[in-house]
Write a protein that binds this DNA or RNA. Structure first.
Length: 575
RNA sequence: GCGCCCGUAGCUCAGUGGAUAGAGUGGUUCACUCCGAAUGAACAGGCCGCGAGUUCGAUCCUCGCCGGGCGCACCA
């Protein structure tokens, strides 16, 4: 496809300006206001070098550029040179490209097949999968899809929190108050019950904590009884998690979690010792990070058992050796910023230069509103909203709306799942991931305005128009034998420009690990399509006009489906 | 106390070193004999937290302050 910035940069280029074509290209802006053109070149930077008022420079450049079929008009306003693209030419280029590429539009080969690991979701075993877990799960999945789309070979790892003192606690609680029948009946909620009871009773009886730590030491030492219980808890939990992953249509390439690295740590503890990094302190072994302004990284507890950082070091080295990644992306809550800083510093001190390829992608906290109070969800206190409940409620609400609307030819069961779950995912990917938010049923169940259902509705509507077109018209669209000059209205043109920018938006979203950039752009496309749809009748008498508009509808539908797909959301044809 | 993050319309949030700071939602009003009204349009709503600095130019970068969140060794 034509690259308008290249065309413009080449047109502007002049030795006297003292800028390279690339410099010029990077200065080109897309004006916020369409009245100022489709592209603009600001001349402020040139003022000093040329010793001329920027307005004069802009006028000179605008005057120099002669007729190029890509542009309808080039003029200067104040210090800007404004370029107005030839609309029909532009539309023909963009729409044809989209329709030729189909589901490949938006994808690229920037990654050149290099390997990227994305670690995400990573729930703690034996704890409920609550609304807070949706963040890592859904953001991580979108990042995986984005990296896949820009040509990387992506490995998805669910780094299960399936080890640590919490299992000591769980085993102690189960032995004291648990029963097999109860556990089999409703595993996670029962385990949660034991876990909350443990913390309640441990407040009055601190010896329980010691008992839990001792039990974890036995687990880590491979005592059969503890290992058997641990395995049982892990299996029961995974079965429940998989139910939610199925609903979200998310899969992983590896579930190697913390326990996987339990026997791989001694090597690194020895290595830290050999490199003189490990010091004893209060019975524990730490790496002192004071000179880097951080509290120490704890490698082993005074009872000799391992910790979070230790396991993450083992995991990182294992992954480097096993996958030889180009980048390893950790989608983990911002609460763990310090942990990741410490961990990266320790890897650096150990001499692993590739630690710079390990990237922590943090996200903000989800809290709950409790009357006037806002508080963190706490597994210990049992104050959580289950993700599965949220998904099911959204699906039910969607089914209610669909029955009300009585859309014909739809399987309510299938589509209400696609739309309801899509709504929850979309909501999650709408805002900058770093922002904290308070969970609200009203918000997650709102399907009007900038929401997943709105975008899916737009897709269904475009699909509907295409169904209403004749076979002959569609054949004409595919053959491309029509005159594009009829496609030049403001609303059509705004839409074309948004479609044009999709590949660069996908790339930007991936580079910044920020799916919301794509979500926002997708909303813009849907809004723009709906405006176009309202402003203009599509299936008109005039053949050229009809086919050009249908080609745009087809391209819009393709792009919306592609973008929804990158976010992990389905695009139903009817709803 | 120290470190990191956030502060933009009533609410939820986009946004950019440059031309008039934008959406959604809520409020008021209009548009379905018309390709799907889960839609579109109109109106109203802003010292871009406060104060300095850098710059030709700051809502954006730097520093300080205020407000909120998170974190700071035997949890993960």
């Amino acid at each position: 496809m034509v690259d308008f910035k290249d065309i413009i940069a080449n047109e502007i280029y002049d030795e006297a300006l003292g800028l390279s074509i690339d410099d010029i290209r990077n200065l080109i802006e897309i004006p916020a206001d369409e009245k100022m053109g489709d592209f603009a070149f600001p001349c402020f930077r040139l003022a000093k070098a040329l010793r001329k008022a920027p307005q004069m420079i802009a006028a000179d450049i605008a005057g120099r550029i002669s007729g190029n079929e890509a542009f309808a008009k080039v003029e200067n306003v104040n210090a800007y040179v404004n370029f107005f693209i030839n609309r029909a030419y532009f539309a023909s280029q963009v729409v044809s490209e989209v329709n030729d590429l189909g589901d490949q539009y938006g994808r690229s080969d920037h990654g050149a097949g290099r390997k990227v690991i994305v670690e995400y979701s990573s729930p703690n075993i034996a704890k409920p999968f609550h609304i807070g877990h949706i963040r890592s799960t859904v953001i991580g999945n979108a990042i995986y899809k984005l990296y896949d789309a820009i040509g990387f070979d992506v490995v998805r790892i669910n780094h299960l929190g399936d080890y640590g003192t919490q299992f000591g606690k769980m085993i102690v609680a189960y032995r004291k108050w648990g029963s097999e029948e109860e556990l089999a009946h409703d595993p996670i909620k029962t385990l949660l019950k034991y876990y909350t009871r443990f913390h309640k009773e441990a407040k009055d009886d601190p010896s329980l904590e010691d008992e839990a730590r001792e039990t974890f030491v036995r687990l880590e030492a491979g005592e059969p009884e503890e290992v058997a219980l641990w395995k049982k808890f892990r299996e029961l939990s995974l079965a429940e998690f998989n139910r939610v992953y199925d609903m979200l249509d998310i899969t992983f390439d590896s579930y190697a979690g913390e326990s996987f690295y339990s026997d791989k740590m001694p090597r690194f503890i020895q290595e830290l010792k050999d490199k003189g990094l490990l010091i004893k302190s209060e019975g524990a072994q730490i790496v002192d990070l004071e000179e880097y302004g951080m509290s120490p990284a704890m490698i082993t507890k005074s009872d000799g058992s391992s910790l979070y950082v230790t396991r993450d070091i083992a995991a990182a080295v294992y992954r480097k050796e096993h996958y030889d990644f180009y980048k390893c992306i950790y989608v983990v809550a911002s609460q763990q910023n310090l942990h990741f800083k410490q961990w990266k510093k320790v890897l650096e001190l150990m001499g692993y230069e590739w630690e710079k390829d390990c990237i922590h992608v943090p996200f903000g906290l989800v809290s709950l509103s409790d009357g006037d109070d806002i508080k963190m969800m706490s597994t210990r206190e049992g104050t959580v909203v289950f993700l599965e409940d949220v998904l099911n409620t959204a699906v039910e609400k969607t089914a209610d709306i669909m029955r009300e609307k009585q859309t014909s030819g739809v399987d309510i069961d299938t589509v209400s799942r696609e739309v309801g779950i899509g709504a929850v995912i979309f909501q999650e990917l709408s805002n900058n991931r770093i922002k904290d938010y308070v969970f609200s049923w009203d918000k997650v169940l709102n399907f009007d305005g900038e929401t997943g259902p709105y975008v899916q509705y737009t897709h269904a509507r475009a699909s509907s128009v295409l169904r209403n077109a004749s076979e002959e018209d569609l054949a004409g669209v595919r053959a491309g034998e029509f005159d594009w000059s009829k496609l030049n209205s403001d609303s059509a043109y705004t839409l074309v420009k948004l479609l044009y920018r999709v590949p660069e938006v996908v790339l930007e979203a991936a580079n910044k690990y920020e799916p919301s950039i794509l979500t926002r752009h997708l909303v813009d496309i849907a809004q723009s399509f709906n405006k176009f749809y309202h402003d203009e009748h599509i299936l008109v008498e005039d053949k050229d006009e009809k086919l050009a508009k249908l080609a745009l509808v087809l391209a819009s539908r393709t792009v919306i489906a592609n973008c929804l797909g990158l976010l992990g959301i389905k695009a139903p044809e009817r709803m």
